[in-house]
Amino acid sequence: MAEDRAGIVDGVIRERRTVKVLADEAFPVTDVRPVVEELVDVAGWAPFHRVAARTHLEGALTSIVPWRFYLVDADGCRALRLALLARGDKSKIPRMLAAASALVQATWLPNPAKGEHMGLFEATEENMEHVAAAGAAVQNLLLAAQARGIPNYWASGGALRGADAFGWMGIPTGEILLGSLFLFPTETDGAEVSPGSHRNNRGTPSDWSRWVRLDLPDAG
């Protein structure tokens, strides 16, 4: 039984791949909200070590987890596409929004900065753990999508990480976008389907892992 489950999980992990679906004309709108909510439920079982700072628990979303997911349905994706095109956006984002069944804006919640601070966030151990936990939640969601046969893509966000997009979606300015997660339909006729460029260049486990040989001080 355990071997069967391991084989299924391993297969989903190995099969998951970047799929960008790019369309010049908007796809028909389909309601996939129930499926997206399933994915979010599964994603929420990601491990996290540190709870989110109290300042992030005062809005509409009050979970202690250090990530947030903002869900955009197909209608919303089409509206975002038009808004970006009206601003002259010539990136691939509007073309992906034309095809997407849904978009998930995944953010992570940095701790409030202490003292003088010039960057997006302070490079503290706690913030590193928040990013890692949010990344685990994102991967959970993508694997759950893969298991259901849903093409998916983790994008850096482009214009979707800007202040205007955050304002349109009601995302608090104190959060940082970890990724724009595109979920696409399985029928992609009339669209350009582009795979990821790094999938087959990662090497083998021996290129990124090794058993360590301890060099401990003399206990005497």
Rank of each mutant, 00 (worst) to 15 (best):
L39N: 03
V40Y: 11
V40A: 13
V40L: 15
D41G: 15
V42D: 00
V42N: 01
V42L: 13
A43T: 13
A43Q: 04
G44V: 01
G44R: 14
W45E: 15
W45D: 06
W45S: 12
P47S: 04
P47I: 08
F48A: 08
F48I: 08
H49L: 02
H49K: 11
H49R: 12
H49A: 07
R50T: 12
R50Y: 13
V51H: 14
A52C: 11
A52L: 05
A52H: 10
A53D: 15
A53S: 10
A53R: 07
A53M: 07
A53L: 07
R54S: 15
T55M: 10
T55I: 13
H56K: 01
L57F: 09
L57T: 14
L57E: 00
E58L: 10
E58P: 01
E58H: 03
E58W: 00
G59A: 14
G59S: 14
G59Y: 04
A60I: 12
A60C: 10
L61Q: 15
L61M: 05
L61T: 14
T62K: 10
T62A: 07
S63M: 06
S63W: 03
I64C: 01
I64Y: 11
P66F: 08
P66Q: 08
W67R: 01
W67F: 05
W67P: 01
W67V: 02
R68V: 00
R68C: 03
R68E: 11
F69G: 05
F69D: 00
F69I: 03
F69C: 04
Y70S: 10
Y70M: 07
L71K: 03
V72M: 08
V72R: 01
V72N: 14
D73A: 07
D73K: 11
D73G: 12
D73C: 05
A74F: 02
A74N: 05
A74E: 07
D75A: 07
D75L: 12
D75I: 10
G76S: 05
G76V: 02
C77N: 08
C77E: 05
R78N: 03
R78A: 09
R78S: 04
A79E: 13
A79R: 00
A79Y: 05
L80H: 05
R81D: 06
R81M: 03
R81K: 04
L82H: 11
L82A: 15
L82R: 04
A83V: 12
A83T: 12
A83E: 13
A83Y: 09
L84Q: 13
L85N: 15
A86S: 13
R87W: 13
R87Q: 14
R87K: 14
R87M: 10
R87D: 14
R87H: 08
G88R: 03
D89K: 06
K90A: 15
S91R: 03
S91G: 11
S91C: 10
S91M: 06
K92C: 08
K92E: 14
K92V: 02
K92P: 03
I93G: 09
I93C: 12
P94Q: 04
P94N: 08
P94I: 01
P94S: 09
P94W: 00
R95M: 15
R95D: 15
M96V: 12
M96H: 05
M96A: 08
L97W: 05
L97G: 00
L97F: 06
L97T: 09
A98K: 11
A99C: 11
A100I: 07
A100D: 10
A100H: 09
S101T: 07
A102C: 08
A102M: 07
L103Q: 04
L103A: 03
